[in-house]
Amino acid sequence: MNRIAETFKRLKQKKEKALVGFVSAGDPNISDSLRLIKAMCEAGVDILELGVPFSDPTSDGPVIQRSSGRALKSGVNLKAVIAMTRKIREFSEQTPIILFSYYNPIYAYGNKSFYNDAIAAGADGVLIVDLPPEESDEMTSEWTGNDFSLIRLIAPTTQQERMAHIAASASGFLYLISKVGVTGSDGLDTGDISEHIKRLRSVTQIPICVGFGISTPQDVAAVAAVADGVVIGSAFERLIEENLENPALVSVLAEKVKACKAATVETS
């Protein structure tokens, strides 16, 4: 069994939901970023999403745009993110690592080389925000095994029939976008989310993680009640940005992770 499936199995036994933590890899630089990631894993992140910085992040709000910009400024690119993955495996053997990217950096790297190098470094899958199922064959046709997950996305605008079609080719887990808009937007509507999850569960057995606009432990608890996992990105990145000069940054972030993780534990 791969790390993603094992993680969901373990959490189910413990009556917990997955805390999926996103950070822009290399923000603000590679060594600090690795320290932050280590602290996040130790504080309770169950699945790590490593953001590959991109010059034109059209699905991201200002917080992740800026974090991606800081990483780019410190010279981080896909090659460096893959190298960071290898480093992360030195301190965290079991945490699933999903590379979170736009398509162009991967396309420029080469679909086949990316697949080989990402697996060799210890990554478990990839989520590509701008590669819908209509276009993903060109990439997956160059993948030679089934040991690497392409995390598919479902949006609030996705119709039922399309939902079923996307779910049929999904692996690892499905990423449900909580609402229209870019990452980090306000106005979480848990009623809407549970409606979308209900529709999605009618067509798939695969775990469902919800992301976009989830920032507080209260949000986490509300979403964890209906989903299999909760993704936090902008809220972590905002904290990093606000504490860039703070020597206690690592522990500030770890506290936030702990509070969010505690909210994923089933209370009933």
Binding site: P132, E134, E135, L153, A155, P156, I166, I177, G181
Partner: peptide, 12 residues
Amino acid sequence: GGRYVGETLMPA
């Protein structure tokens, strides 16, 4: 060509 966009925009 093609359609390389986020899922939110695909149905539109």
